[in-house]
Each structure stands twice: as structure tokens, then as C-alpha cells.
Computed example of a mutant assay.
Amino acid sequence: MRFSWAALAVPASAMLTATAFGLVYGASLTPVGWRNTFVMGFVGMVLGGGLIGLAFVLYDFRTENAEESVHVQEIAVAICVAVTMFVGWIVLKDHALHERGRPVRAVVTALQAGAGPFDAGTEAVLADASHHPLGAIGAGNLAVGDHITVTIDPRGRYGVSAGPPPADPEWLWTLSALIALVQALLTASIGFSAARAREHWPPRAR
């Protein structure tokens, strides 16, 4: 029984990982990506629903004196999902810019405060040699009039990125796989603990 619950947790974890990556991929196909409040709200609702669904699948029938370690594992699973989405976004962006990104010499035309709800600090507004706006990046030590090389996505799905086109992010795919493996092991442990705790429940009266 214990190993059956642990085995059930593995495909449940895989489905959660696939859902997280699917949401990231879907957002990457939109011109606004993560910088749209509606997209972020929709992703949050779907991800929250996925975590609630996983909780029901792995419901462990614990008493009020549940093991603290299991609670920690559940939090760790949620963290794995969040990290999967973050790494997945970076992977998709770097892969797209590696395949189709175009290097452009840009000039800093202005400095401004971050415009998005999740942006902090100062941004450098960029334009190309023909004075066409390219977008903005983190200002760092840049000043108005500075010239830098940036990479743009001709399809406009990703914003401008500092530096030349990145290399193929193979190591990030490996990192994603490792995170998925850790998440599967954690959910399997939760499922095993669920079955073990249920074995100590008294039989139900008929």
C-alpha cells in the first residue's frame, strides 16, 4: 500500500511539472509574456489549482499530530514548481534568442524608473542607430549616451536583452530535469508517508 501511494505520487508530480512548463510556454507565445497583469493572474490561478489538485491526490489522512517533515516537503514541492516556471522562462528566452536573436548596437537615450509592477530600480531606455526604440533593460552603471550591444527578438515575444545572442542553454535543460527529479522524490515521500499514516487509522464502523 505504501509503495502504491508513492508510485501514484510520481506521475502526479510529472503532471504538475508539465503544467508549470506549459503555462510558461503559453506565456512565452504572447507578446507581453509575464509583464501583463492578466497573464500573471491567470497563471497564478491555474498554478494554485494544480497545487490544490495535487494536495487532494496525495491527501495523507493525517491526524492533527502530523509529522512536521511532511509539511516541509509539501512546501518544498511548491517551491520546486515555482523554480521550474522561473527556470523554464529563462530557458525559453535564451533558446529563442540563441536561435533567432539579432545583435544590435544601441544607445541609451534615457533613464527611467521601472515601469512594470515587478520591476525595481532604474531602466535604461534604448534606441538603435536609426533612433528606433528597442525597449529597456536594467540600467546598472549605464548613463545616457552610452553605446552597448543588445540582442532583440525579431518576433517581439521577448524584450531586448543586454549583450550578444546567448549560447544554447543546454545546462538549463539539465537543471530543469534535476528539479523535476527532486520534486518527484519529494512527492513520492509524501505519498509514502500518507499511506503509512493511514495504516494506523482505526477501521471505519459499518
Rank of each mutant, 00 (worst) to 15 (best):
A7T: 07
G135S: 05
G159I: 12
M40S: 14
R35H: 11
D146T: 10
L134G: 02
W34L: 06
S4T: 12
R155F: 12
G163N: 03
H132W: 05
R2P: 14
S189R: 14
F42V: 14
T17F: 07
A66S: 15
G49N: 02
A12W: 12
L16R: 03
T37V: 01
R198H: 15
P117A: 06
A177W: 14
L16A: 08
V72W: 15
R105C: 08
T63H: 12
S193H: 07
H95R: 09
P203F: 05
V182M: 08
E123F: 09
A120Q: 10
A82H: 13
V150I: 11
G33A: 06
G163D: 03
I79G: 14
G145D: 02
L178E: 10
L172K: 11
G138Y: 05
T151C: 00
R206C: 06
L126D: 03
H131I: 06
G121H: 07
R204N: 00
I190L: 02
F61I: 08
M45G: 09
G88V: 00
A7H: 03
C80H: 11
L186Q: 04
L23R: 04
H200A: 12
L185I: 08
N65A: 15
L97N: 10
H71K: 15
R100A: 03
G33I: 04
S130F: 01
P164E: 08
D60C: 02
S193C: 07
I90N: 09
L126I: 01
M45A: 14
M45D: 09
G33S: 01
F118D: 04
G116R: 15
V150D: 09
P154L: 08
G44R: 06
R157L: 13
G116Q: 13
D94C: 01
L16E: 02
P169W: 13
T151F: 04
A9T: 04
V125Y: 05
I137T: 02
G116P: 11
A180E: 01
